[in-house]
Structure formats: structure tokens, C-alpha cells
């Protein structure tokens, strides 16, 4: 009974993994293409110094970026040194992890198009709201 159940579960798992393999491969290739084409120095040139526009730009750049969150912290630290506002940097590091424009095709295929678009859009907006709230709270502490 247990062996039979395990065999069934294993077969289902292998089937699931084979189904998602092309999508995973596509996402990995797309991320690699993006990392190779966009130099990290490019990011800092986008900010304007405007307190309202920069968080939006930060969130948008974070959304189209991909990679280890540690890279976003390091870039964020550099942005701060270059005079970019903490609100913009916060929106940037948040959307880096919570929004995935590059992964959107994969998320749409696996979790549904409407769900993927709605989730990413709400995460993008909330990254800006959370950035403002975080800085407002810090100024009160």
C-alpha cells in the first residue's frame, strides 16, 4: 500500500517537474540575458532627485531587475552614498524581491495570467507605500 502510494506520488512529481522544466529554463535564460546586458552602473543614472518620482523609479527598476536580494542591498547602499533618497532605495529593494517582471511569463503559465498580473501590480504599488510608511515611522522613532 505504502509502496504503491509512494510510486504514484513519485510518478506525479516527475510528471510535474518535466512540465515545468521548459518554463524554468526559459526564466533562467531570460534572467541571464538581462544580467549580461544591463551593467549595474546603469541603475544609478536613472534617479532624478525628485522625492515623489524617485520612489516610483526605484520600484520600477527593482521590478524589472532580478537576482540575489543581497545585490539589491549592495546597490541600495551605493545609491544612498550617491544621494538617492532612502524612500527610493527602500522601494527599490522591496520591489526587487516582491515584483518579478522577468518571471511574469512563468508566473502566468503556472499560477494564471490574471493572478500574476494582479499580484505583481499590487506588489509594485505596495512597495512604494511600504517605503513611505517605513521612512515616516523611522522619522517618528
Amino acid at each position: 500500500m505504502i509502496i504503491n502510494d509512494s510510486k504514484k506520488a513519485l510518478q506525479k512529481t516527475i510528471k510535474n517537474l518535466f512540465q515545468i522544466l521548459p518554463i524554468m529554463l526559459g526564466v533562467i535564460m531570460l534572467i541571464s540575458l538581462f544580467i549580461s546586458l544591463i551593467p549595474t552602473g546603469f541603475y544609478a543614472t536613472i534617479f532624478t532627485g525628485n522625492i515623489f518620482l524617485d520612489p516610483l523609479l526605484g520600484a520600477m527598476i527593482g521590478s524589472i531587475s532580478s537576482g540575489n536580494p543581497l545585490v539589491s542591498y549592495m546597490l541600495g547602499g551605493e545609491f544612498l552614498k550617491q544621494g538617492v533618497s532612502l524612500i527610493a532605495v527602500t522601494a527599490f529593494i522591496l520591489s526587487w524581491v516582491t515584483v518579478g517582471i522577468i518571471q511574469l511569463p512563468a508566473e502566468s503559465l503556472m499560477l494564471g495570467k490574471q493572478y500574476a498580473i494582479t499580484r505583481n501590480l499590487i506588489s509594485l504599488i505596495s512597495s512604494i507605500i511600504v517605503a513611505f510608511l517605513t521612512i515616516a515611522t523611522l522619522s517618528l522613532i
Partner: peptide, 16 residues
Amino acid sequence: GKWIFIIIVSFFYGIL
């Protein structure tokens, strides 16, 4: 859809 996705990405690689 999953194969179309990887074909499109491969096409980008071809262009690059």
C-alpha cells in the same frame, strides 16, 4: 505556452 516561452527567449539569444 511553456514551449512558446522558451522559443521566444532562444530567439532573443539568436538576435544577441
